[in-house]
Every structure is written in structure tokens, then in C-alpha cells.
């Protein structure tokens, strides 16, 4: 017992080494695409300048939600961030969150749909999701480095892995929750599986899927902060710098900026998630 140790860590390391070696073409390609996307988004947002960005956000929120409090709060919050001199870092963080969320949804929603349809896949995916969600977030940082090296792409990789489970889970749940009678009805009228998915499953599961997207965004935001340890920069980078230099005030300022971004994202997604009542 004392001398024999199960080589779990060694095995996983060997597996990752193997993957790094043989998936290099894939990771390189996807890293390039992600980097281009991220750079483009970040540059666009920065080019808008702080007042421009704030104006666009507020007008968009007003048209979308007609919620005066939300508009005013967002304007004030963003203005505060600007005032604290954290604008560039905030934009960098937002760009990271947007790109990782998009990647997580592009992979997660279809996976959720498939695991709702196939019980076999469902039984396979669910325990993996359990593991993914209970694994400490920091652990995902380590394999990202051999694949992508230090930097933003590695940060996005670990963020996608960390934030994807709710997208899969909620999509799957939303579709499985469709009342049996409606499912029966679509079959009785001769719908194909695809027609059922488009006409019944997705529209009815939309609020649940939106709740999953909300969670994914929130997890992505928390992860891009943690990913500053492997070079994500942005607001997380400010916090990380403040830790290393023991600049308490600077650290809290960055923390407040993160809270503001999180609150705006959360409220907006909640508004989008509640179906409009006529």
C-alpha cells in the first residue's frame, strides 16, 4: 500500500503529452482562428472608445428591454470603470468572455441536443459533466499550457472547458422536459425528428437554454479572471498584478469592475431569457 501508488497522474500526463503531439495541427489551427477573432473583437470595441461603447450599450439596452433602471445602472457602472482607468482591461475581459462563450455554446448546445435525443450518449455525457463541474477551476489551466502555451488562447481553452457544462445540461434538460403529449402530437401528425426539433423542442426549450447560456457566461467571466494566471490579462490580470505587488486598492478596483461587468451581463441575459408576456 505504501510502496505501490496508482499511476493516475502519470497516465493522464502521458495522455495529454500524446494528444499535444498528435493534435498539434488542430490546436494550432483553432488557436489561430480564436486569436484572429479575439483580436478583431477587441480592436473593434476599443476603437469605439469608452463614451461610444457606453452609448451603444445603453441605447441597445433601452431598445431591447425598456428598463430605465438597467440602462441608468449600466451607464453609471461603465462610467465608473472608465474613471478608474480600467477601460482597456475591461474590454479585453469582455472580448475574452464573448469569444469563449461563443465557443462553449457552439460546442455545448448541439451536444445538449444530441444527448437529449440519444439516451446512450446522455448516460455517457452526464457523469463527465459532473466531473467537469466539480473539478477545481485551476486544474484546467495546466493542460491548456502544453496545448497553446501561455496567453489568451490557453485562457480561452480552459474557459470553454469550464463554462460549457451548463450549456449542455440545460439544453438537454429543456428538451427532455417537453410535455409527453406534445411530443406524441408531433409524432401523430407525422413530423420527422428534425421537424420536431425545429418546431417543438427548441422553441419550447428556449427559456431553459437561455438560463444555461446565462450560467455559461457567468462561469466564463469567473474563469477568465482565474485564467489571468496563465496570461489572460484583462481585469483578472489587474487583480493578479495587485496580488503580486500587494496593492490592495488596485486589486479592489479591478474587483469592482468585474462585479459591474457581471451584473450587467446577468441582468441582460435574464431579460432575454424570460419570455415576453403579452
Amino acid at each position: 500500500m505504501i510502496n505501490f501508488r496508482l499511476p493516475i497522474g502519470d497516465a493522464l500526463e502521458a495522455m495529454i503529452d500524446f494528444l499535444v503531439e498528435h493534435l498539434a495541427f488542430f490546436t494550432k489551427a483553432s488557436a489561430d482562428i480564436i486569436e484572429v477573432m479575439l483580436k478583431a473583437l477587441e480592436n473593434t470595441l476599443l476603437a469605439m472608445t469608452a463614451p461610444g461603447f457606453i452609448a451603444v450599450v445603453v441605447i441597445g439596452l433601452w431598445l431591447g428591454t425598456k428598463d430605465r433602471k438597467l440602462c441608468l445602472g449600466s451607464a453609471l457602472g461603465l462610467a465608473l470603470i472608465w474613471n478608474m482607468g480600467l477601460w482597456t482591461a475591461t474590454i479585453s475581459t469582455i472580448a475574452l468572455v464573448v469569444v469563449s462563450t461563443l465557443c462553449a455554446l457552439i460546442i455545448g448546445v448541439p451536444l445538449g441536443i444530441i444527448s437529449a435525443i440519444s439516451s446512450a450518449l446522455n448516460r455517457m455525457v452526464m457523469p463527465i459533466l459532473d466531473i467537469m463541474q466539480t473539478m477545481p477551476a485551476f486544474v484546467y489551466l495546466i493542460p491548456a499550457i502544453p496545448f497553446f502555451g501561455l496567453g489568451k488562447t490557453a485562457a480561452i481553452f480552459s474557459t470553454v472547458v469550464f463554462s460549457m457544462p451548463p450549456a449542455i445540461r440545460f439544453t438537454c434538460l429543456g428538451i427532455r422536459q417537453i410535455p409527453a403529449e406534445l411530443v406524441e402530437c408531433s409524432a401523430a401528425f407525422g413530423a420527422t425528428r428534425w421537424q420536431r426539433l425545429i418546431k417543438l423542442d427548441l422553441p419550447l426549450a428556449a427559456p431553459t437554454i437561455m438560463a444555461g447560456i446565462n450560467q455559461t457566461v457567468m462561469l466564463a467571466l469567473s474563469m477568465v479572471v482565474i485564467a489571468s494566471m496563465i496570461g489572460a490579462k484583462g481585469l483578472g490580470g489587474e487583480v493578479w498584478k495587485a496580488i503580486q505587488r500587494l496593492q490592495m486598492g488596485r486589486g479592489f478596483e479591478a474587483g469592482i469592475a468585474i462585479v459591474i461587468v457581471a451584473m450587467i451581463l446577468d441582468r441582460v441575459l435574464q431579460k432575454l431569457g424570460t419570455p415576453k408576456q403579452k
Binding site: 406524441e184 402530437c185 409524432a187 401523430a188 407525422g190 422553441p203
Partner: peptide
């Protein structure tokens, strides 16, 4: 073939209506 028969020959009405709420 089954889908075709269901689409063209068999209309069904359900106990709890089964209308699509959206």
C-alpha cells in the same frame, strides 16, 4: 410511409389538447 399515412389520413385529437403554447 408511416409518416405519410399519419400526415394524410389520420388526424388525432388529444385529451389535454396538446396545443403548442408558443
Amino acid at each position: 410511409e408511416l409518416r405519410q399515412v399519419r400526415q394524410q389520413k389520420l388526424g388525432m385529437v388529444f385529451q389535454n389538447f396538446a396545443l403548442f403554447p408558443h
